[in-house]
Amino acid sequence: MFLNVAQLQVRYPDRARPSVDAVSFGLRAGEVGVLIGPSGCGKTTLLRAVAGLERVTAGEIRLAGAVVSSASVRVPPESRRIGMVFQDYALFPHLSVQDNVRFGLHHQARSDQQRRVREVLDWVGLASSAQRYPHELSGGQQQRVALARALAPAPQLLLLDEPFSNLDVELRERLALEVRGILKAANTTALFVTHDQMEAFAIGDVIGVMSEGRLHQWDDAYTLYHRPATRFVADFIGHGVFTPATLREVNNQIVVSTAVGELTDVAECPLPCAFTAGECDVLLRADDIVHDDDAPVKAEILRKSFRGSEFLYTLRLKTGETVMAHVPSHHDHTLGEWIGIRAEVDHVVTFNRACPVNHHELCSMPCAAHATSAAQEHLLQRQEKP
C-alpha cells in the first residue's frame, strides 16, 4: 500500500473520547480514496493527521513505506511531499492564474516552472486562462486552479478537504467527475473528504464511512451500498429502512417473510439458525420496492420528493411499518393515496434485531457478519453429516 494507516488514534486532551479511534485502511498508488460521514465524525481530523498537522497518539501512518506519523515519530508536513486543496481555494487574489500555480515551484529553474505550469493548466482545462485573475473566474474554475497549484510540485499524495462545498449541487458532482479524470491523468494518489455521497461515488475508487471517530467500512461504492458491513453504513448510505423479517428453510431454500411479502430465490442470505427463531431485520432499499397497481400489498403515501425522472416515496403499510420506493415521475400520486407495491430483492442484507436502530458503536463483529459466521458454521455441520 502506498498510504497505510494502522490502528490510528488522535486524541485531544480536553475531549473524553478520541477524535480518531483505531482507524486502519490502505490506499494503493494512483488510487483515489474518499472519507465520508456526518459532521464531527473525525474525517477531517484524520486527513490532517495524514498531512502531519495533527499529532498521533497511537498507531502509525506510513507513506511510500516510511513511517511519517506515530506516537514517537512526526515527520514535518513540509517534508512529506503532500499537496492540499481546501474548500476556500486559498488563491492569491493579486496573482494571475499562472503565478498562483507557479507559487510552489520557486526552487525550479524558470524554464522548468513555465513548462510545468503549462502542463498542469492543460490538465485542468485552463491553459487559455493563464493570464486571468481569480476574481475573473467562476467558482468551478477557481477550484481547478487550486487543484493545478497543488499538483504542480508533483506531490506523492494529494489531500482534498471538502473542496466543492462552496459550489452548487449540480456543479459539485460534475466537477467531482472532472477532478477524478485529472487525478487519473496525472496518476496521482489522493485522499478526499466530503459529506456528500454523490461526490464520494463520483470521485472515489474506494470509500471509507466514518462515525464518531471509527471507520465502519472501507470499500468500493457498490459494496457499500449493497453489502454494508454495519447497521450504520446501511443507514447512512442510500435510501432505505430496516424492516422485521423471519427466515425459514423450505425444501433447502431460504424464504424471508416480510411485511411486503415473501422474498425467495435470494443470494447470499444467511441460514435461519443465524438468528434466534430466525427473526432478524432486513434492509430494504428504495430500489428494492416496485410500484405495482396489481400487487396485493398496499401502502399509503406519507411523503414524496420529486427528483426529476422519479419520485422518492415514503410509504406506510397497513401493519404500520414504513418503506421507501423510487417511482417513475409520471406516476404522480397524491399524499394519502394507497398504491400497490412489491419487493424485488436480489440479495438480502440482514442484521440482528437486538442491535439498536441508531447503531453507532462498532460491534466486535458487524451484525451481518454475526449472521454469516453462524450460517457458515451451520453449513459446515450439515456437510459433515452423512
Rank of each mutant, 00 (worst) to 15 (best):
F351E: 00
D88Y: 13
N187L: 07
H330C: 04
V250Y: 08
G208A: 00
Q143P: 01
S72G: 06
T44H: 11
V67Y: 10
A176M: 01
G308D: 13
V20W: 02
T258V: 03
T276W: 10
D21V: 00
L183E: 04
Q376D: 14
E268F: 11
T45L: 11
E344W: 05
L91Q: 09
K184Y: 07
S257V: 06
Q142S: 09
V145C: 02
V206M: 03
V179W: 01
F236L: 02
Q383M: 13
A295K: 12
N252A: 15
E344L: 13
R115G: 07
D14G: 01
T246A: 05
R231S: 10
S39F: 07
D220E: 11
C41K: 09
L263C: 03
V75R: 12
A221W: 08
R15F: 08
V5H: 00
S24D: 06
V290N: 03
S329H: 15
H333T: 11
Q113F: 02
L167Q: 07
D220T: 04
L151W: 01
P244V: 05
A6I: 06
D235F: 06
E377L: 14
A325K: 06
G204E: 10
P244Y: 07
R214Q: 15
G213F: 06
P366K: 06
L151E: 01
A150S: 13
H359R: 13
L167T: 10
H347F: 05
